[in-house]
Design a protein around this nucleic acid. Sequence first.
DNA 1: GCCGAGTGTCACAGAGCCGTCACAGAGGAA
DNA 2: TTCCTCTGTGACGGCTCTGTGACACTCGGC
Lengths: 225, 225
Amino acid sequence: MPFLLLIEDDDAIRTGLELGLSRQGHRVVAAATGEDGLKLLKEQRPDLIVLDVMLPGIDGFEVCRRIRRTDQLPIILLTARSDDIDVVVGLESGADDYVIKPVQPRVLDARIRAVLRRGERDSTDSAAFGSIVIDRSAMTVTKDGQDLQLTPTELRLLLELSRRPGQALSRQQLLRLVWEHDYLGDSRLVDACVQRLRAKIEDVPSSPTLIRTVRGVGYRLDTPQ
Amino acid sequence: MPFLLLIEDDDAIRTGLELGLSRQGHRVVAAATGEDGLKLLKEQRPDLIVLDVMLPGIDGFEVCRRIRRTDQLPIILLTARSDDIDVVVGLESGADDYVIKPVQPRVLDARIRAVLRRGERDSTDSAAFGSIVIDRSAMTVTKDGQDLQLTPTELRLLLELSRRPGQALSRQQLLRLVWEHDYLGDSRLVDACVQRLRAKIEDVPSSPTLIRTVRGVGYRLDTPQ
DNA sequence: GCCGAGTGTCACAGAGCCGTCACAGAGGAA
DNA sequence: TTCCTCTGTGACGGCTCTGTGACACTCGGC
């Protein structure tokens, strides 16, 4: 399920899109200002951002640029038809697509899926971490050339970690990305899965070099040198 | 020199692309409607088709599907940014790539060359997987030289898998590609067809080496060794 | 060293996924 | 019509996976 961050100051439009996009099968969090949006971005790590151009405070273009300084995640700009804006400025600030308001949720949904699809295709199909090679299209993982038998959950976990190498992900974030739920009580769910994954991909599972524990936070996938 | 068929109803865009692509070193024939395009396709046998989605009469998706019924030649879809379409549908109707208008001839050229390169590698008229040989123009499959009697559905399934060797395809994707519908409840439709196909092409159907199960995802056609 | 919070580990039972099968309806040929 | 093949369905069983909770362990602060 795609996980979206919607940044839009107009209450009516924001609520409408939030509802509409949820019905189209997305999980949506929303912010009314650029500042709030950037904050939510860091906390929640969405898959894609839908970003209004005309915002109080820092505007959409600026938000876009700031995101692009550190992040490659896809951005769709929302612009009012009456805005006499230069599409080039928008695209140069790093947006992936443009949608003109008013927009039907299902239209926006189609654009979102298109952009996500493009992203999937553009992202390299394989990644390497030490002796581990992940082939995203074959959905296989090999260690020193040998095929590893990962279970679906282990694979999803590794894929999500590998999409953000070197970045610490909290248990909460992993839960959302891999299990698509929101609430982790104090179960050892994530830890247990990490343990099983380590058992398969680490040379010495008890002192892992790939999936590192970040105490007080969660886990991080490193490329050992 | 790549030989292209361009199907696009807008005169200005068609002429512009025709000229631009010629300058990039392609030979181009153009048609303004799907019907004309299909006629030209038969007469001229181009290497690749650039196909607009929004066409008067039969639309691009339908043209794409009709071509795919008999032909494996590469197709690039052209879609207007404002088109209310789901690009995923386009790729699943059998296209190899898509490009969003407006597009610079040199960008389109790059995509064309990429698709053709990909094509050279794997869309020859026959393909071999272990002892299985698929002849796409004769629509026959042989195992150790012996003709196999595949049913139409089994054949389509094998063809779709073989167009993407080594790539895991979900049941959902296979359903769209082979059966052309959208909803898989929790029926065992895909599995049953895979089972029947395995019974014919695998040496030991109960431990398949060609059509591998990707647990939690779907299936993948491998070339053993 | 002691303590508490955070993390690693494990076994187990239930859930989920997949292979398999029989069957019935559709469709085509004679 | 009858016969035959093909195809989709749903039930079933087996096996794998996975979440849980208990317990052990580690780390860092005091």
